[in-house]
């Protein structure tokens, strides 16, 4: 290993343009994957809560899916989607869907039946029930799922460097390739910070988004 551990800061400032480009790629694919993940997982969870016989197979599938290594999803998509952005986005989206779906399902299922019955008694329609009662009540758990997915995907996006997908993983792998600590840490430290900061920001945001009175502490 060459170099002084703090030299990575010099490396970043000397390669600012490259660093910002990679950071941009990293953020882009992570955020997009979470957005698509939400768009798929939320409606899916709503449907699965309504259709009881889907519940068991879908949650089992999601739980088994959680055990599939991300790298394997990337690798398996290579022959189909080629290299670069698309297979990366696909793998990250799959990874985002799993925790968001599981949390949304558990959250909506966990809404107090008495509250639902009361709402029905007041004559709320199905869609009103969902939008005005179930989703708001489940929002702390749903939001926790989104938080998990985002922080986790910041990490997984580093693997894109194996398949031409860019991102900060490029610097980690280049540093590894040359056993050059400054390059390696120029990728690794910002990724780690990004994940931590995202965790904290989303934690704060949860307090803003989730209705007061429903705010519970979720790890």
């Amino acid at each position: 290993m060459r170099g002084d551990p703090l030299e990575f800061i010099t490396y970043i400032s000397e390669h600012e343009e490259q660093f910002l480009r990679l950071l941009g790629q990293h953020l882009q694919v992570t955020l997009l994957s979470v957005a698509i993940g939400i768009a798929i997982a939320l409606p899916l969870a709503v449907v699965v809560v309504r259709v009881d016989r889907l519940a068991k197979p879908m949650t089992t599938l999601a739980n088994v899916g959680q055990t599939i290594p991300s790298l394997a999803i990337l690798g398996l998509m290579l022959p189909i989607l080629g290299i670069g952005f698309l297979p990366t986005l696909f793998a990250l989206t799959i990874r985002a869907i799993l925790p968001i779906f599981l949390n949304a399902y558990v959250g909506i299922r966990g809404v107090d039946r008495a509250v639902v019955d009361a709402a029905r008694g007041m004559g709320t329609s199905n869609s009103q029930l969902l939008l005005l009662v179930e989703l708001p009540l489940a929002s702390p758990v749903i939001f926790a799922g989104i938080q998990t997915a985002t922080v986790q995907n910041i990490g997984i996006a580093t693997l894109a460097a194996y398949i031409g997908g860019g991102g900060l993983g490029d610097l980690i792998l280049q540093g590894l390739a040359m056993l050059d600590t400054s390059v390696l840490l120029a990728g690794a430290v910002p990724v780690a910070l990004l994940a931590m900061v995202t965790e904290i920001i989303l934690g704060r945001l949860r307090r803003v988004v989730v209705p007061r009175g429903l705010q519970i502490d979720i790890k």
């Binding site: 290579l78 290299i83 460097a161 031409g164 860019g166 490029d170």
Partner: peptide
Amino acid sequence: ERGMDPGI
């Protein structure tokens, strides 16, 4: 410039 595994 894109970096990737040697095989692909």
